[in-house]
Structures are given as C-alpha cells and as structure tokens.
Design a protein around this nucleic acid. Structure first.
Lengths: 128, 128
DNA sequence: CGGAATCCCGTGCGATACTG
DNA sequence: CAGTATCGCACGGGATTCCG
C-alpha cells in the first residue's frame, strides 16, 4: 500500500486510463495552468480560463477536487469569497501539463495547416 | 507565416484549444506512445492499445493522420498490410505525452484513493 | 488482414435563467 | 459573488455485423 504502486496505461483494466481521461477533460489543462501561478477565486478563474459557463466550471472544479488535485476554501463573508488552489498532487501535475500546453501552442500552426490542407484536397483544390 | 507563430491556450478564439482537445482524446496518448517505439500494423496497434474496437481505432488513426501526427502506409499485398508511423510532428509529441503517461501511472494510486475516500464520506463511512 | 456500415446510448458541454 | 436548476443536443465511443 505504501510502496508507490505504478500503473500501466496499456492495461485496459488499470485505472490509469481514468486518470488520462481526467487530464483529457476539456478544461483540466487550462484550470491547472491557471492555478499554477497561485490560488484564484471563482470569478477570476472564470475570466482567466475564458468562455466557460459557471455550471461547467463548477463541475470541473468539483471533479478536480474529488481527485485531490485542488482544494476549495470558502470564507464565511459577505459577499461570499471562495478560493481554489492546487494541492501537492495538483502541483505535481503542473510540469507535464505545462509541457503539453507549450507543445500545443507551438505546434498549433502546423496542425491547423495540415487540417486545412487535407480539407482542400478533399474539395479538389490543388489538382483541378 | 514562416516565423513559428505561437498560440495562446487561454484565448478562447485560438485554435490551440482544438489541439488540446486532440491530445485530450481518449486514445491519442496511448496510440502515440504505442508508435513511439516504431511503426506498427493495424492489428499490432490494436493489441498494444488494448480494448479498442476497430471502428474507433480507425477513426482515431484517421484523425491523427489528418492532423499530421502519423503516416499511413498501405502495401499492395495479399493479405493486406498497413503500417502506421509517427511523423516528425508526431515524434515531437512523444516527450510531453510520455511525461503525461508517466505522471498518470505514478499518481493513479493517490487519485483513486482520493476518489474512494470521497465516496466513502458521501456514504457516511468513517463517521458512524 | 484491415477495415466499412449500421445501430445505439451515455454524457460532456453549452445556453439560459434563477438564488442564498 | 458564487454558485444551482433545467433543458437540450451533438457526438465520442461501444457492440455487432459484413466486405474486398
């Protein structure tokens, strides 16, 4: 139990896949990256992530919390204030997730170009 | 055009998000990792990835091909032989994706434990 | 062997509106 | 401010069957 058991992503029965699915969630990367710089409030998070509805943001945060990646702290004030912060586990996710985002940002042009080219070919452009 | 333009994942209008979605696909990580060691045939890929139906594997491969991450080579033989290999772009994805898989495999235990604990609390276990 | 075709279902996600 | 409540739907993905 205490010896850090390691999963196998290629084993269909291994829950490692569910962990990959979690990272694969549409908002996980953005939320982790947003919180990487420090705790944020709900509204701040909403602005930073951009184009996410409150419902979905709430659901994503609950899910991340459930997996132990973030902590939620509610302050009994008026008006209400709630802060979200990465846990140690969440902090450990910053590195791989940042690498992923960097890769995405650097290669988005190439990928979009490829998609467009394929579309053009499908439409017959280039060999008329 | 030729200066490597960099995206911004936090900009909702930036296609970088679609790139993140691609990596977030349930099978992308496994397929990239499987091909990281070298080209594989359809059937081999199926075995290696595990528990993926032909239809979904085909769809995933087409999608990856469309984004320029893998190449498909069909040999006109009997029986048919088709090989899939990473492109240069796909090769560049190995590093971040490997980091992600490693993280998932190393932290799956902690995450599952967290999920279970929350479930238990929801059922009242631990404070009866 | 490497798919394609068809049927089908859960659910992630979005839009809108309301509340403690 | 920080959510909840409802509605709705596209669609990713699975099971099954058949084809060149």
């Amino acid at each position: 139990m205490e010896d850090p058991w390691t999963g196998d992503a290629f084993n269909p029965a291994c829950p490692t896949r569910t962990v990959l699915d979690r990272v694969g969630d549409r908002w996980t990367v953005l939320i982790i990256e947003a919180l990487a710089a420090g705790p944020l409030r709900f509204g701040q998070l909403r602005e930073r992530v951009g184009a996410i509805t409150p419902k979905v943001l709430t659901a994503s945060l609950r899910s991340l919390q459930r997996d132990g990646l973030i902590d939620r702290t509610a302050y009994a004030e008026v008006p209400p204030r709630v802060e979200y912060a990465l846990t140690d586990l969440g902090l450990s996710l910053r590195t791989p997730v940042a690498a992923l985002r960097t890769w995405a940002e650097q290669n988005v042009a190439a990928i979009v170009a490829h998609r467009t080219r394929d579309l053009d070919e499908a439409q017959g452009i280039g060999h008329v």
